[in-house]
């Protein structure tokens, strides 16, 4: 390490003490967003697996229950929502795990930036590459379940909105269990009860659309749930990560 003195004049002269970093938070958040997007896109299977799981689960129901279109149509909103919820849940375990294993999580915790904001960036990427694709794919599976016409748009919108809350709440569970070797089942145990309100209003919105009732109330409540999750979840995620890193 003696060569390459050509670099900037860092290598001699006294080291300055850094002050409080200013305006660095945005740089760090943007870089974290970009890094996680790149990472996910380089391992495409992590993006595709939840989608395939979603399609598979939906395939199981007509086989397990009955291919009768009328019956399927009545249970379709709930089925689609439950299957999408499980698919999103399944992918959550990996949200912080690889970072934990290779040590970048402790570096994330040691950055002089607000941890809650950095964690939020990671959750945003998760939603963008899991929740949103699930929402876009749901109408296709809706056709297979003879979902009545006129509810497809609501299905996609409610899933897009609801899955953001699911990602946020689920990230708390992922952060709490990231240090545990057998966190996979535990995370479902922690997170699923908390998912119930989102499921109720999400599936309710699709049902309301089928019945021809107004859906704006449901979507508004989903939005409110998201707002609550946005306020509380980042802090809970940050606190949980600090706990998990302590081992």
């Amino acid at each position: 390490m003696s060569s390459a003195e050509s670099g900037p004049a860092r290598r001699d002269g006294p080291l300055p003490l850094a002050g409080e970093p200013e305006g660095g938070a945005m740089v760090a958040i943007r870089a974290t967003l970009k890094r996680d997007l790149v990472l996910m896109l380089r391992r495409r299977s992590e993006v595709l697996n939840p989608l395939v799981f979603f399609a598979l689960v939906i395939t199981l129901f007509p086989i397990g229950i009955s291919p009768d279109p009328e019956l399927l149509a009545t249970i379709a909103p709930g089925l689609l929502w439950v299957a999408a919820l499980l698919a999103a849940l399944l992918s959550l375990d990996g949200l912080f795990r690889s970072d934990y294993e290779d040590g970048s999580l402790e570096q994330l915790l040691l950055s002089p930036q607000p941890l809650a904001a950095l964690a939020l960036a990671k959750v945003a990427v998760h939603w963008l590459l899991t929740g949103l694709p699930l929402a876009l794919m749901a109408p296709v599976l809706g056709i297979m379940l003879s979902l009545p016409a006129g509810s497809y748009g609501v299905l996609a919108v409610s899933l897009a909105l609801g899955s953001a809350s699911l990602s946020l709440i689920g990230a708390i569970g992922a952060a709490l269990t990231v240090g545990l070797s057998r966190g996979g089942v535990l995370i479902s145990l922690l997170v699923l009860p908390l998912y119930i309100p989102v499921l109720i209003f999400g599936a309710g919105a699709v049902q309301a659309a089928i019945l021809g009732a107004g859906v704006s109330a449901h979507l508004a409540i989903l939005g409110a749930l998201l707002a609550v999750a946005l306020i509380f979840a980042p802090w809970a995620i940050a606190a949980s990560l600090r706990i998990s890193i302590n081992g």
């Binding site: 003490l17 002050g19 290779d102 040590g103 402790e106 040691l110």
Partner: peptide
Amino acid sequence: LANLLYLGHAPGVK
């Protein structure tokens, strides 16, 4: 933290 550089057991390299 702005003055600290920590390297742990795991290299922290993706």
